[in-house]
Design a protein around this nucleic acid. Structure first.
Length: 425
DNA sequence: TCTGGGGTCCTAGGACCC
DNA sequence: TCTGGGGTCCTAGGACCC
């Protein structure tokens, strides 16, 4: 059996931990740059606010006091997520952390009769110790556990825990699950299935495997198997990420080359830092930019360029250098850029870096790696309240505060920022 | 005026090899 | 007129997830 633990309305719940006055109110959390709605309280869902809604469409509700909006505060959410996960990890033989607000628990060795009470205890413990409400779905496959967790969340009677442990319950649950709510069936496949007469998960499992294979692909066949109660979704292996990306939209459109280069440097430095965090190094660095695709009145340009490194690297100096080199090949004046980003790929373990036969700069690289390591040590002691590292390359953006990314409704960094601790005292 | 960010996997088609 | 067969690797695009 698997148990899927899912934090309810996670980002909103995190904000409420430190702002209990938001309890019972319609609250939303916004994406970066205060662009879209990415988390909603039950009250704001009830008002009909949809996931992904552009914030400006509901901004009037905040002005009239009917809705509270929070800018996203990922440092806070990451911290609370860690606390939740460590409580879960202590309770079971094995845990797979699936996302910031979800984890699969492996329940081998726990008698089936004991599972519901154990899960109810976990719901209670996480609520009391961290302050975040969670729902748990238990079933023989991950896809079914996901469905069970929807029921646990939706119906109060379950008190946070729903278990699918018989065929009768399984088929009942599938009848009540619209096909588009099934894990693995997205916004493209759902209409395609509906056209073919598949409205619910139960409709899908009634079709023969061959029909699924011929009309769709292997992923859909896997989903079909999982819904039958046969595990088919692979274990999440914690391997090295294959790409790492840092990108942002800007509060205002940018035209100036030098200004844009500062942003690209920042993104590249963040990628390099993420690489070092997991002892990786990248062989390729891609820089990309977007103009504002919603402004049909303006000229559009979505360029990208990739620079290959002779030797895989993770130092800020080398990654930033490559990103800027790529940037210079694609920057064109006259466009108004709304977003930019850096992707590092060709990732290898840092202790398995292939030296180039023509690498004459070995000594330099070693010094740059050492320098980045020192920067990490200093920066790990704390950041400014905008989350910017204290030590940066000269090519990165100066200053501590204005970062050109809108976050007008940001909560304090309750658990992580030095400034705020000083401020509190 | 205002529209997120970060990942994974699969597939089809082309280049290239023998 | 007829013009092989099989394999690998890479890439771009499309689908999915949170």
């Amino acid at each position: 059996m698997y148990a899927l633990v899912d934090c309810n309305n996670f980002f909103v719940s995190c904000e409420r931990v430190f702002q209990p006055q938001l309890e019972g109110k319609a609250v939303v959390v916004l994406s970066n740059n205060d662009g879209c709605i990415v988390s909603r309280s039950n009250e704001s869902k009830a008002m009909g606010i949809r996931m992904g809604t552009p914030f400006y469409q509901v901004k009037h509700l905040t002005e009239s006091g009917r809705l509270v909006a929070c800018s996203s505060n990922y440092a806070l959410y990451g911290d609370l997520s860690n606390r939740v996960m460590s409580i879960l990890a202590d309770a079971v033989p094995k845990i797979e952390i699936y996302s910031i607000d979800e984890a699969y628990l492996h329940l081998e060795g726990i008698p089936e009769k004991a599972i519901p009470q154990m899960c109810r205890d976990l719901v209670e413990k996480v609520r009391r110790w961290v302050g975040v409400p969670v729902s748990i779905g238990v079933a023989p496959t991950k896809t079914l556990a996901k469905i069970a967790s929807h029921f646990a969340k939706k119906y109060k009677g379950y008190r946070g825990v729903c278990m699918i442990d018989s065929d009768v319950k399984r088929l009942k649950a599938l009848e009540l699950t619209p096909i588009g709510d099934v894990w693995g069936i997205g916004r493209r496949l759902a209409p395609k299935l509906q056209e073919r007469g598949v409205a619910t998960a139960a409709d899908l499992v009634r079709r023969p495997a061959r029909w699924v294979r011929e009309n769709f692909n292997v992923n859909t066949v896997r989903t079909w198997e999982e819904l039958q109660g046969r595990p088919c979704v692979d274990e999440e292996k914690h391997e090295r990420r294959k790409t790492i990306c840092t990108s942002r939209s800007f509060a205002d459109m940018i035209t100036d080359e030098a200004e844009l280069a500062l942003r690209v440097s920042d993104f590249a430095a963040m990628c390099a830092h993420k690489l070092r965090e997991e002892d990786s190094a990248a062989g390729e660095v891609t820089t990309f930019m977007y103009t504002n695709r919603f402004r049909e009145d303006l000229a559009q340009y979505f360029p990208y360029a990739t620079v290959r490194l002779d030797v895989a690297a993770s130092s800020a100096h080398e990654i930033v250098g490559a990103a800027l080199k790529a940037f210079r090949t694609i920057y064109r004046p006259g466009f108004r850029y709304k977003k930019a980003g850096v992707v590092v790929s060709g990732i290898v373990a840092s202790d398995a870096i292939q030296a180039s036969m023509f690498d004459f700069d070995d000594e330099l690289r070693i010094r740059q790696d050492r320098l980045s390591k020192v920067m990490d040590e200093v920066n790990s002691a704390g950041a400014s309240s905008s989350g910017r590292p204290l030590l940066r390359l000269a090519s990165q953006r100066p200053g501590h505060y204005a970062d050109g990314i809108r976050s007008d409704y940001r909560s304090r960094l309750y658990t992580t920022s030095l400034d705020d601790i000083i401020d509190v005292h």
